[in-house]
Every structure is written in C-alpha cells, then in structure tokens.
Design a protein around this nucleic acid. Structure first.
Lengths: 341, 341
DNA sequence: CTTATCCGAGAAATCGATTTCTTGAACCAA
DNA sequence: TTGGTTCAAGAAATCGATTTCTCGGATAAG
C-alpha cells in the first residue's frame, strides 16, 4: 500500500450526477459539449465537477466509443537521427490534432513489427503509420481490416500491394546521386544499403542502376555494401571498400551517418575525400555540414513527410476522408552539393 | 463507410464462451492463465478462440483492471541525441517488461508538461518518468497522489522536494570539467546552459563554481551563455564568445551538440581548438569522436539511466516495491580526454 | 451412511463512461 | 378542450472484459 493511497477516491460521473442532482446522461452531455443542454443544468454540473475535482476515466470512454485517439508509428530504432526527427515532428503534429503518438521500435525484427500491428486488433490504437517495413505485403494486408495503415517513406516493391504511402522518391534519389557522380567522371561507385530487405534501399538501388544503364557503364555487384545504418557501420564499410580488389573512387550511402563514418575513417587513414574517394550521403542531417570535408547529400523533407503522414491519418480517423481514397504522395528531394563529392 | 468495414465483426469473450460452450468467466480464466482451470475446458476455449480469431479488447480490460500497462516519459524534444538514445533504451526495456512507453514532448513548455502529467489522472498511463522538468515542485507534487512519478536525470533544487530520481551527478560533472580546465591553466572559462530553468544545468553550474572557489579563481557571470541546446545554438554561442570584451580561453557546454557547433564555427573562423579555445562537452555522443579536433567530454551512462528508470518504475507498478521506498541513485560519470581540451 | 470441506465452473455484479430509449412538460393548432 | 408535436432530461442499455459470489458435485472425515 502506497502512502496516502487510501485517501484517493477518484470521482466518477455518477458522483458528479448525484451532487449536481441530475442524471449521468446529462453530465456526459456537459462533458461532451452537447449544445441542447440547458444552461442551468450545465452550470450545476460544471460546479459539481469542479467541487469534486472530477476527471473522466479515459479507458471507460475508449471502451464505449471504440476509439483511443492514439496513433502508433513503427520505426526501426529511434536514435537514428532520421527517425528521431521524423517522430519528433509526428508527435508534435499529432498532439496538435488531439491525438497521442505511440512510438514503436521494431528493431527491424519482423515478429516485433507484427506485434505492434496487433495494437490495432486489440483496439489500443486507432491507426498505424509504418515508417519501417520488414514484413511482406501478404502479412501486412491482413491488418488493414482492423484499421487504417499508412506507409511513411516506405513502400512495397510488390506490384499488387495496394496501400497509400507518404514518401520521397527513393528511386529518383538513387538516380540523381549516381548521375552526379558519373558526370564527375566516376565509374566505380559503391552502393550502401542497410540490408536486402530494406524497401527504400532497394528503390534507391533501382534508380542508382538506372543511371548506370543510361550512361552505359557496367555495375559490379561486389560494390554493394550491406549492413549500412549508422556511423559505426560506416567505419567498417570504409575498410571493406579498401579491401576490394578494384577500389571504388566514389561511394553513395543511404544515410548521412554512414557517410560520416566513412569520411571519418578516411581522414584517419589519409585517404583524401573527395580526391581519392568521393562520398554522397542521404538525408541532409546537421552533421553533414559539420564533418570535414562537408558532405554532399540528398535532402529529404523530413518534417513534410511527418506532417503529411499524420494529417492524412487523422483525416481518415475523423472520417473526413475515406481511407481507400488516399493517394500516395511523392515529396520532392534535391541534391545538396558540398565538398565531399 | 470504409471498404469492407461492414465485414469486420470483432469477436468478444461472449462469442468464444458460446462457441466453446462454457461461461465467460472460464474464457477469462484461460486468457489469464489461471492455473485451476480444467484441461478440457482450456482446450475447448483455446480452440474456440483460434477458430474465431479472438483478440481481447484492451480498453475493456483497462477499465476493469484499472491499469494500462503504459508508462509515459516526458522529454523536451526527442530529436536531441541524448533524449533519443534515452528514450530508445527506455522503449526497448519497457517492451521487454510488458509495458508500452508513451513518449511525450513538452518542448520545455510548463503547461504542456502538466497536460502530460494529466495522463495519470485520466488513467491513460500507470506512471510517469520525467526526463524534463520545468514546473515547480509544488505543481508536480499534486500529481503524486494519482500514481508514481519518477525523475530521470533531473531533480529539484527545492530542498523539500521528496521524489526519487535516477540520475548522474551533474554537480560533480560540472566540477570535474572545471577542475580539468583550470588545471590546464585556464582562468577564463565560459559556461553554457540551456536556460535558467534547467535543473540539471544549474547543478552543473554549482559544481563548476565549486571548482573555481576551490582554486580561488573569480568567476565572471558574463561568461554564462544561455539558450545552449543544439548545434545551431552552439554556432551562435561561438560568436557571442568572440564578442566578449575579455575572450574566454575555454568553454564548457552542457551537451556535445553545442560543443560541436562551437568547434565547427571555430574551425571556419580560423580559431584554433584547443590552443585558442579549449572545449569540453557533456554526454559522449558519437559525433564527439567524429568532429575534428575530437571532443573532450563527460561520459554519461545513458543506457544505464534509461534501464534503471524503467526497471524501477515497473517494480513499483507491479507492486514489487513500494514507491516511497525508492532511493534516488547517482550513476557514475567520467571525463573522456580527447583533443579539444 | 451422513456431514463437513473443498474446489472448479457458472451466474451475476462490476469497472465508468456514452448512447439509445422513454417520458412528461410545454407549446401549438384545430 | 383535446390531440399532436417537439424536445430536454432521466432511465436504462451498452461497450467487453474481470472478479466476486454462489452452487453443486466430489472427496474426506467421523
């Protein structure tokens, strides 16, 4: 028993009704601002609520109204700066619109991802925004019947996948990065990806390869570097690049962190950036300007992605928009030229 | 009406009971693994649940059990790397212990902070971890009657504040930073703080000043830099430092980001670090190793702080520990010497 | 063989709101 | 005066679980 616990008696709507001398229904009407309620009754109820320090029990309301005013967002891990920025803006936007944001970290584990989607089934959240997808379309599809699921900066390669997505054009991002490097005379360009189950990574690769095709340059699959997701993995990749029998003259990473890890290690090993190794990142993270040489990268409108996703989800939840009518949107990106390439 | 919405009929415990030919109570017993339930009944219920694809409604359970298995954590903004790391670990730890973590961003707004504490009153969360505090002890105190509130890396200067805190010793951190710089011969050292309502910042300042006293060096209050919280503000502070009539030879910041902003701008302006301006950070963020020159900083055991906070909260919520019996803990920190000082 | 005890499962109450249904007063028209 | 509307407010049902209460059968003790 906690100290003072016995003193706390949470007041219910019935207590308020009794004190005000009205019915529970009337109290509920006052709480929910039903306009037809008589001014005198409203006053009595308000006074009673105030006297008792009444606070409505949200679980009871959730049960009855079948909604929780909560949106879940699934990300791999939140400490990655892209995701922390994304989730920060989503949280603020959700708050503004009267919703709570439940942040779920899947750690890229398929099973965990699904267990977070279960929040929909168990009615703990009203909708889910997936900023990370590892499961197949077939698995995800099943959840759509329980509530709206929105993709955020991710999508399915699967042609038949029919789900809206708020994202940037990753394919185009890969394309302009490769094009820029090729035009600077590079022919051996490495490509970094977090894993072969990264949807956005694969799309970037698609665009990347398209540029190679367009310029009729062959691409060597051994130049694909896996497990690239943070500074530390960037460091390791630098050494892998060194070890390749034909060393690439440039590298394109799916995140600024990886790029920074590579540059940092290059600096330590006396490999000159960009002369001996050009580096292009992705995101335009604050460290892109800090690192020396500063990082050429592809700017992503994170706040836009976040805001649009939440706005869209809330519109659906409020019934202002039909889920099936949501159009996927591609937000624009651009190459930011700095010193590293 | 959404497509297919009319098809979804969520099954309830009554449906399961009917199909299995048992009472609702028995179904509930099976769900909650009550050991006394007959094996045959258990099987029938399990089979029925499976057949119907039954998923329990959590709002109903929450209402009845008066708990939500959710912990709220209040942070200023999540994109700050310290807080994103903190919250990442908290989230994973909470998940492990069967709890959800609701991340609340106060943006250092007092009113918002209180409105998140209201989640306790409305029974939307079982407990609150405050990793950011702007309100006075008097205000916070009122919420303790509604559930456990734990401080995380923050505390009240107010002597009578009686609330447990899992934190590092900020005072000591400020002390060792100042001591280190003073021993290197610095006498004019600037001190950065996010604002004069930052509890942890004020504690660091206390320790910082203690070192000055110990070495009998006067401290000039004009060397206190306010509004220091991210890279950008670090940049601005660099120029403020330049503008001081007697330029400091060293600066101690409350976060690595601020330090990095200062160093970055120093590099651009040809001010040599550490020769002309020594810099000491706080946290040991990954960028501390990346920046050139690398950053001397004070290591904080973020994961420890996060894990301990959540473990502690869960123990209280599970009734394994009495809230009033929780002891505040000070986790150890240490100076990491690199090139910037 | 009878009575006391135990125990598992069903019946019913409960959590605290919202929402539907019902009622009676007020008002108007015939 | 009577019958028909209208409408605000009260009564009761409802959301979907958990938990307490109750009961009857099985077992043990006398």
């Amino acid at each position: 028993m906690q100290l003072g616990e016995e003193d706390i008696v949470l007041k219910t709507i019935s207590d308020v009704a009794k004190l005000a001398g009205v019915s529970r229904a009337s109290v509920s009407r006052v709480i929910n601002n039903v306009p037809t309620v008589n001014e005198e009754i409203r006053k009595k109820v308000l006074k009673a609520m105030d006297e008792l320090g009444f606070i409505p029990n949200v679980s009871a309301r959730n049960l009855r109204t079948k909604q929780t005013k909560t949106i879940a967002v699934i990300v791999p891990l939140i400490s990655n700066t892209f995701f922390s920025r994304l989730v920060q803006t989503m949280g603020i936007e959700a708050e503004k619109l009267g919703y709570k944001l439940l942040i779920c970290q899947s750690r890229n584990i398929e099973k965990d991802e699904l267990s977070f989607l279960d929040l929909l089934k168990t009615r703990q959240v009203d909708g889910v925004v997936m900023a990370s997808v590892r499961n197949s379309w077939k698995k995800i599809k099943n959840y759509l019947q329980y509530g709206p699921v929105l993709m955020c900066n991710e999508s399915f390669l699967d042609e038949e996948a029919d789900i809206p997505s708020i994202k940037i054009d990753h394919e185009y991002g890969g394309y302009i990065a490769a094009q820029y490097l090729i035009k600077q005379g590079h022919k051996r360009i490495a490509f970094c990806i977090s894993g072969d189950d990264s949807r956005s990574g694969l799309e970037r690769k698609k665009g990347f390869l398209r540029a190679f095709q367009e310029f009729e340059i062959p691409f060597d699959e051994s130049f694909v570097m896996n497990n690239a997701f943070d500074i530390e993995s960037g460091r390791e990749i630098f050494y892998q690049l060194l070890g390749l029998h034909e060393r690439p003259t440039a590298v394109f990473t799916g995140s600024d962190e990886v790029a920074v890890g590579i540059i940092s290690e290059a600096n330590k090993n006396g490999v000159k950036v960009p002369e001996e190794l050009a580096v292009v990142g992705f995101d335009d993270n604050p460290i892109a300007k800090i690192i020396q040489p500063s990082l050429t990268t592809i700017y992503q409108p994170i706040d836009d992605i976040a805001k649009t996703s939440i706005e869209c989800m809330v519109q659906v939840l409020k019934g202002e928009k039909d889920f099936s009518s949501i159009k996927s949107v591609n937000l624009s990106i651009r190459l930011i030229k700095r010193e590293s390439a």
